[in-house]
Design a protein around this nucleic acid. Sequence first.
DNA 1: GCCTGAATTATACGCGTGTATAATTGAAGG
DNA 2: CCTTCAATTATACACGCGTATAATTCAGGC
Lengths: 216, 216
Amino acid sequence: MIPAALSDRRPYLRDSEDARRAALVAAVLDLVAEGGVDAATLRAVAARAGVTPGLIRHYFGDKDGLMRAAYGRMMAAMVDPCLAAADAAGVDPVARLAAFLAAALDPAALDGRTVTLWAAYIHRTRHDPALRAAHEAGYLAFRDALEALIAALPACHLPPRVAAIALNALLDGLWLEGGLLPQGFVPGEVQRIALTAAARLLDLPELTELSETEGP
Amino acid sequence: MIPAALSDRRPYLRDSEDARRAALVAAVLDLVAEGGVDAATLRAVAARAGVTPGLIRHYFGDKDGLMRAAYGRMMAAMVDPCLAAADAAGVDPVARLAAFLAAALDPAALDGRTVTLWAAYIHRTRHDPALRAAHEAGYLAFRDALEALIAALPACHLPPRVAAIALNALLDGLWLEGGLLPQGFVPGEVQRIALTAAARLLDLPELTELSETEGP
DNA sequence: GCCTGAATTATACGCGTGTATAATTGAAGG
DNA sequence: CCTTCAATTATACACGCGTATAATTCAGGC
């Protein structure tokens, strides 16, 4: 046996399969957000996850498998908090909608990192059928949730589908602009605009004061 | 002199500097739209433009120079038609706005190719200062034009800045969704939703019939 | 009618990539 | 205690990339 001091072989550390998969996926998302898809080379991913490139092949088969897993994780991280916020807001339809909107444009989600990450994947969704399916599923889940929230509203003069599409587009656009040009808005402005515009689209009384109920 | 039949050297064809730059930039945009940024290698770009990789270096210095030029061209192709449509619509503020909106969501602009192209560049705008400046300039030009159109409107209960941001976000989102999920909408639906939502946001009478004045 | 110089092509280099396969490690079962 | 097998690392390979530089071709000035 070769003494540790003389062997430059990387120490052999075991871990659970779940932990390894999670670490590798997290490394991909970090790298993509920092330097674009190009930065997420297998070697860089492995280094950040503290393992060796071969392990990626062991767990994900090839690079496409890794990227697909990372994309699924990203979509969940974007959509789930909004659904959870609505559910946590109780039963009042207006409060539920306001909570959903506020969560969608939460400063954490508005981070340019997330937008960059999302954009970096978009072009792949057009050519990779698996990614495309994941994209459509996530997008429609979000829009359907929005449509359900709108349908539960007391009075809305627009068909729920139309209102959901328009409101969803408004959220997407604000999320995009807020994430890409953070210094173009004063803090909280993006959320306020979303609530104002949503109120006008849906014939609702002003929603803005609802979001300011988070006192210290 | 070696007979042409024996020389496999590519025929030497001269062209103007403008034509060469335009051909190379067009080749970049085509390739990026088709296969993402990865597909736009210097060799592939040169082949599509009918030249040799060395020419790219001659005209653009390095790959970054090429990509910057292509980005500027893309932004102009997205923004200019909207400005032109508004100017061509005469002096009525409402007609001008409707024309601008319709142009922004024109089927040609709504092509998934354009969205893909745009997304493919986004992550670079976060790290490349020159691209970032180009992005901000194009974005703000668009939004300022929108704000000017809104400010000229007869009555608007929203501050022009807020209305412009919201409407711009709505356009961005619809453009995104329409381009990425074309089969998720019936033809013309995206434009109709944009006009309906804009009318509600701006306290305007319905705008939808304005876009249907294009009879044969 | 040559000669200069820009436009264009050709070739070579070094590097990093994804993939494949072999070598090692350690834990669990008999 | 030994065997077995999955988890992990190490090494090798072939390829395409961006860049650099040298060789060619053509047009215009003298």
